[in-house]
Design a protein around this nucleic acid. Structure first.
Lengths: 211, 211
DNA sequence: AAATGAATAATGAATGTTCATTCCGTTAAT
DNA sequence: ATTAACGGAATGAACATTCATTATTCATTT
C-alpha cells in the first residue's frame, strides 16, 4: 500500500505523452456531473477517458483523490474565467454585467463543470486544500461588494456575504431549472434575469424605508 | 410469567404495527440528507429508524422505492406548509411576505427535509409519479406570478417560470451558504434578503430602461 | 380470566452483486 | 534488452436484498 502510493506520488512525468491526467480529470468531471459522486464507479471514468482502470490509478491514488483533483481543476477554471483581467476594486454596473456575462458563458460552454461545482455532496470528500480553493473566488467577490457598498453603488442593507449568496443562488437556480427542463433560457431571458438580480443588490432610492 | 428477555422486549412494544412506515421515512430523510442518496447504505437507515433491515424491506420494495416515498412525503409536507389557506389568486406584497415567512420557517424547522429536497441527484431515481408531485407546487406558484404580472404588481419583463426559478434559487442559495458555514442568517438578514428578492421580481418604475 | 396456536410481523445472518483497488502480463520507448 | 507505461482480469470489501427463524398478536377455546 505504501509502495503504490509513493510510485503514484513521485510520477512527475505522466508517461511520454502528456495530457492523460487531464483527459482523466475531464472525463471524471463529466461522469460525476451526470451520475453523482457516489453514483459513478471508477471503470466508466477510465472508459470515457480512453484509458485502462490501472492507468487511472497510476495518476490518482484513489477515487477520492480524483474527486479532489477534479474539483480543484474545475474551480480553478471557473475562477480564471470569471476574474481574469477584471478590476474588482472598481465596481460598477458594467463590472456587474461583465461578471454575469462571464458566468453565463461558463455555464453555457461547460455545463457539466458548472453542475459538478454545484453538487451538494462533495463537501464530505474535500480535503482542506480543496476547500480553501473555494475562498479564492469568494474573497475577491466579497471585497468587490464591500467597495460597491461604500461607493453607494450597491445596497448596504444586506451584508456582502449575503448579497453574494443571494446572487449566486439565483444564478444557479435558473440554470438548474433549465437543466431540469422547467424552462428554456434565451439570451434575452438571461439579460432580464441579470437586470432583476441587479435590482436586488443595487443601491435603491426607495431604501431608507426601514424595516 | 414471561422470561426476562420477553419483558425487555415488550418494553419496546415490538410487533404492534405502529407508525413504522413513518419512522423509516423520517430516518431515511435524515440519513439521505447527510450522506447523499448513493452514499447511504440501507442498514444505517434501518438502524436510525430503530428497526431491522428485513423490516424495512417489509415496508418498501427497494431502496429506490424508499427514496421515492421519502421524496413524495417531503414534497407534500413542503407544499402543505407553503400553500395551506393561501389565496394565491390575490397576489400582493403581503402574500409574498407570507410565502417567504413560510419558506423560512420550513427551512428552519426541518433543515434536513429542505436539504433533501434540493439534492441534485434524486432526479435519476424518481418515478413519473414522484416527478408530477413537483408540479403540484410549481403550477400554483406560476399562476400567482401570472396574475401578479397582470395586476401590475410584479414585473412582466421576466416570464413567470424564470421569476420563480430566480426567487427559489436565491432562497436556496442563502440557506445553502448558511449550511456550509459561509455565513450566519439572523432574522434581520432574512428580512433584508426577502426585500432584496422582492425588488428583483416586483414591478419597478425604472423598468423600460436599457435592453 | 387464562391458555392456545394459527396468522402476522420482525429480525439479522446469508446471498449474490457491484464496487474500489491491485497485480501482473503485455506493449511501447530508448 | 531494459525500463516504464499501460490495460483489464483478479481480489476482497461493501452493498442491496432475501429468507429461514424467532417474536408478537389476537380470535378462539377452556
Amino acid at each position: 500500500m505504501a509502495t503504490a502510493t509513493s510510485i503514484a506520488n513521485t510520477a512527475f512525468r505522466p508517461g511520454k505523452e502528456g495530457g492523460k491526467r487531464e483527459q482523466i480529470i475531464k472525463a471524471a468531471l463529466q461522469v460525476f456531473a451526470e451520475h453523482g459522486l457516489h453514483g459513478t464507479p471508477v471503470p466508466p471514468i477510465a472508459d470515457k477517458a480512453g484509458v485502462g482502470v490501472g492507468t487511472l490509478y497510476r495518476y490518482f491514488d484513489s477515487k477520492e483523490a480524483l474527486i479532489n483533483a477534479a474539483f480543484c481543476d474545475a474551480k480553478q477554471r471557473l475562477q480564471d474565467h470569471l476574474l481574469a483581467d477584471l478590476d474588482l476594486l472598481n465596481p460598477s454596473r458594467a463590472l456587474f454585467d461583465t461578471l454575469w456575462a462571464r458566468l453565463t458563458s461558463f455555464a453555457r460552454k461547460e455545463p457539466e463543470t458548472f453542475q459538478f461545482l454545484e453538487m451538494q455532496d462533495h463537501h464530505s470528500y474535500l480535503t482542506a486544500e480543496s476547500r480553501s480553493q473555494e475562498q479564492a473566488l469568494l474573497i475577491p467577490l466579497g471585497m468587490m461588494v464591500i467597495i460597491g457598498q461604500r461607493n453607494g453603488l450597491l445596497s448596504d442593507r444586506i451584508k456582502p456575504d449575503l448579497a453574494i449568496a443571494l446572487f449566486w443562488g439565483a444564478f444557479v437556480g435558473i440554470f438548474k431549472a433549465e437543466r431540469l427542463n422547467y424552462l428554456t433560457l434565451t439570451d434575452d431571458d438571461l439579460k432580464r434575469a441579470r437586470d432583476a438580480c441587479w435590482l436586488a443588490v443595487a443601491a435603491n432610492r426607495t431604501e431608507g424605508a426601514s424595516q
